[in-house]
Write a protein that binds this DNA or RNA. Structure first.
Lengths: 212, 212
DNA sequence: ACGATAAACGGACTTTACCCCGATTAACAT
DNA sequence: ATGTTAATCGGGGTAAAGTCCGTTTATCGT
């Protein structure tokens, strides 16, 4: 018999705990499902109308596969949003200042807020569909990026005596909350320049926070 | 034939547009349903386990009635939360300072935040269950009180040049967001004194905003 | 009191999210 | 190449949300 203590993990991929690699067909199926989901969203204009059965059938796969990949209906939208966040994230980590590195922390914070607001308005339907009242918490997906990035920038400001972790959570909520919870979809669609208004308010909030 | 231009509205009750009065049996049934819902929540410890069929059966009513009264599953939790908010609201409007009137606006704002945080932690299960990703927006229920009250207090502060409506929305989000979206239920249950920590962060946030 | 009317009731029906488990197939070592 | 293993695939099954419409009942004018 072969020894049982040889390393099973292929040395790569996500940390520990998650299955080391994802089988090739699984990867292929996930991409295919996400692409199909986007098609359906584009055609039917609205996150309703995207049903699990419908998605499975259109993708030519079994219903079980869809659920194993995404766990829940909200999970699909979380995956879609995560996907859209990828290049956004790259702009933040390595793009031009002030969104990217190189500018003073406060300027980056303001720039990040404005970019995030635009992103959330653009993707408001998908973002709202990630919410699921019966699931414990939207978990990872919901702005681990926002929270982490804001936390980092706060650390570079001179805010003595503040609980930076908690402040980061509050600011993340102040950033996403309006689009996620408090402004109706029609508010966000109106040509009133609501985006600029929210952005302006964010800038004002940050400036006051910094005592400037 | 009787003249058709006599007033049909019984001169009272909500503004215009809504049916003037609610029939007696409708009122009775709503109260009964809410009470039954509370019983079920208390017994089964958790907002799951409260099903529309189950509620209807236990209340001895038809399913159609439940849906006409509350529209949706989330609607039940919104009604429950609204109900719980009633006495909270009274403390705010007419209770002792600094939560009630009589204290400086900043003190009231801080006191309101702390009270609201405690309230949201106490009712976190119900509050989260009011969220429904497929519905346009949690609508009225979701903190018209918070937003309005915060807006009012902001008006009493000397924040020149701020968009007070939008700032009120952002602060409402900063207040409810942590419990609603970003802290897991286990975080909120831990005996770590998380409540004080969030409250402290809120106080700090408000003080910085006011430049103090 | 009583009849007309509009609202509320009730439960069967449809749709959809989510579960389960036997069949299938990729990944890897020999 | 090929056998072994473990994960994936697939689709039928369950339960719960939400809809519909015929029936019942409260309300109000006479």
């Amino acid at each position: 018999m072969a020894p049982m203590d040889r390393p099973v993990l292929p040395l790569g991929s996500p940390p520990i705990g998650a299955p080391p690699t994802e089988r090739a067909d699984a990867v292929r199926n996930r991409k295919h499902l996400l692409a199909t989901a986007r098609e359906m969203l584009a055609e039917q204009c609205g996150s309703d109308g995207l049903t699990m059965d419908g998605l499975a059938e259109r993708a030519g796969l079994g219903k079980g596969t869809v659920f194993r990949r995404f766990g829940t209906r909200a999970g699909i939208f979380q995956a879609l949003l995560e996907d859209d966040e990828r290049d956004f994230q790259e702009q933040v980590l390595a793009g031009p200042a002030p969104l990217g590195p190189g500018a003073p922390a406060m300027d980056r914070l303001i720039a990040y807020g404005e970019a995030r607001i635009a992103f959330m308005i653009r993707n408001r339907d998908i973002a709202r569909a990630t919410l699921d009242g019966r699931q414990p918490i939207p978990a990872g997906t919901e702005s681990p990026l926002s929270r982490t990035h804001i936390r980092m920038l706060l650390g570079q400001l001179q805010l003595d005596g503040a609980d930076l972790e908690m402040l980061a959570i509050q600011l993340t909520a102040a950033l996403d909350g309006p689009m996620l919870l408090y402004l109706s979809s029609s508010d966000l669609t109106e040509p009133t320049g609501i985006e600029d208004r929210i952005g302006q308010a964010w800038q004002d909030l940050i400036r006051r926070l910094c005592g400037a």
